[in-house]
C-alpha cells in the first residue's frame, strides 16, 4: 500500500457553490449502506443465530469464550500485536526524528527508502522474510556455513518470524505518525534548551521525548491494530500451528463453514480494535491536555 499524507479537515467551510441539498451524496451513501452497513449488520445478526434453532441465542459467544484453543488464539493475537507495536515504534522513532530534522538531500532518499516498500505489497515482503528466516534460508545457511551453529535456529514458523514480518510491513505507518508528531515540535525549543546548557541527551529526555508522547501513542496504536487484523503475514510466516484471530476467522468461513462462529470471532476482533482505538484516542487527547500542546 502506498501512503499519502493528508490531514482530516478540521474547519467546516460555508457553502461556496450552491448545491441543491445533498444530492451528490446519494450515490456514495447508497454504496456505503449496501456494501458496508447491511453486511455488517447482517454479520452481527448471524453471530446470534444458532445452527439448529430459529430464535436468537448467545450459544456461539459462549462457545467462543469456553474454547481454550480459540482463547489461546485471542491471547496470541494480543501478545503478537503488542510486540509488533513496540518494535514498530522503537524502530520508527530514530527514522522519524531524522526525517523531521534533516535538511540535507539525503532526507529525500531516506524518506523514499522508508516509505517505498509499502508499494511492494505484503506478499513480496513476506516472501522476502521467508527466504531470509527459513530453516535453509539466508541467515541460517550463513550461520551454519560459518560454523557458529550446526542446527538451524527457529526463526520462522513461530512468533519471532511473524513479529519480524509484521514489523516490517507496518513500520512505514509508524514512521509517518511519529513524523507528524515530531515535525510539530518547534526546532527552536531544542535550540533554546541547548543554549540553556542541555546536552544532546538532556534535550532528548526533557524536550523531544515528552513532547512526542502523543506520536508514540498513535504509532503504537497503529502498530497494534494493523497487526491484530493482519492475515497474510501470520499465515505465511507463522506456519500451520500459529493461529491468530485473523487466520482463525478465515478457517471458520472457508473450511468449517460455521458462519455464526465466524461472525462471533469477527465481532470480537472488531470490538478489540474499536476498544484499542477508543483507548488510544482518549489517551491522546488526555496527553495533549497534559502536555499543554
Amino acid at each position: 500500500m502506498a501512503v499519502i499524507i493528508c490531514s482530516t479537515p478540521t474547519k467546516p467551510l460555508r457553502a461556496v457553490v450552491p448545491v441543491k441539498g445533498l444530492l451528490p451524496l446519494i450515490a456514495p451513501s447508497l454504496v456505503l449502506v449496501l456494501f458496508f452497513a447491511i453486511p455488517m449488520g447482517m454479520m452481527i445478526g448471524i453471530s446470534f443465530q444458532s445452527q439448529t434453532e430459529g430464535s436468537p441465542t448467545l450459544a456461539s459467544y459462549s462457545r467462543f469464550f469456553s474454547n481454550d484453543l480459540v482463547l489461546a488464539g485471542l491471547a496470541r493475537t494480543v501478545v503478537m500485536s503488542g510486540l509488533v507495536a513496540l518494535c514498530v515504534t522503537v524502530l520508527a522513532y530514530p527514522l522519524a526524528y531524522y526525517l523531521a530534522r534533516a535538511t540535507s538531500r539525503w532526507r529525500t532518499v531516506i524518506f523514499a527508502l522508508a516509505i517505498a516498500p509499502e508499494l511492494a505489497g505484503v506478499v513480496l515482503r513476506t516472501y522476502g522474510w521467508l527466504i531470509i528466516l527459513e530453516d535453509r534460508g539466508f541467515i541460517n545457511s550463513a550461520l551454519i556455513w560459518t560454523g557458529l551453529i550446526t542446527e538451524p535456529l527457529p526463526l520462522s514458523k513461530n512468533l519471532f518470524g511473524v513479529v519480524v514480518g509484521l514489523t516490517h510491513v507496518i513500520l512505514p505507518f509508524g514512521v509517518l505518525s511519529l513524523l507528524t508528531s515530531l515535525q510539530g515540535i518547534n526546532p527552536n525549543l531544542e535550540k533554546s534548551a541547548q543554549i540553556l546548557g542541555a546536552s544532546r541527551l538532556a534535550v532528548i529526555r526533557h524536550i523531544i521525548l515528552p513532547l512526542s508522547v502523543p506520536g508514540i501513542v498513535s504509532s503504537f496504536l497503529i502498530g497494534f491494530t494493523m497487526a491484530a487484523s493482519a492475515y497474510a503475514t501470520p499465515a505465511l510466516l507463522g506456519g500451520a500451528g500459529f493461529k491468530v484471530m485473523a487466520t482463525m476467522v478465515y478457517e471458520q468461513v472457508l473450511f468449517y463453514l460455521d458462519w455464526p462462529f465466524a461472525a462471533v470471532m469477527a465481532n470480537v476482533l472488531l470490538i478489540l480494535m474499536l476498544a484499542a482505538g477508543f483507548i488510544g484516542s482518549r489517551l491522546e487527547s488526555r496527553l495533549h491536555q497534559k502536555l499543554h500542546l
Binding site: K191, S192, A193, I195, G197, I207, L211, K290
Partner: peptide, 17 residues
C-alpha cells in the same frame, strides 16, 4: 550548550509542557 550565553527567539520557543 557550553557557550554560557542566553538566547531569546522571535516566537519565544517556550517549552509548552
Amino acid at each position: 550548550e557550553a557557550r554560557k550565553i542566553g538566547l531569546v527567539f522571535q516566537n519565544y520557543a517556550l517549552f509548552p509542557h
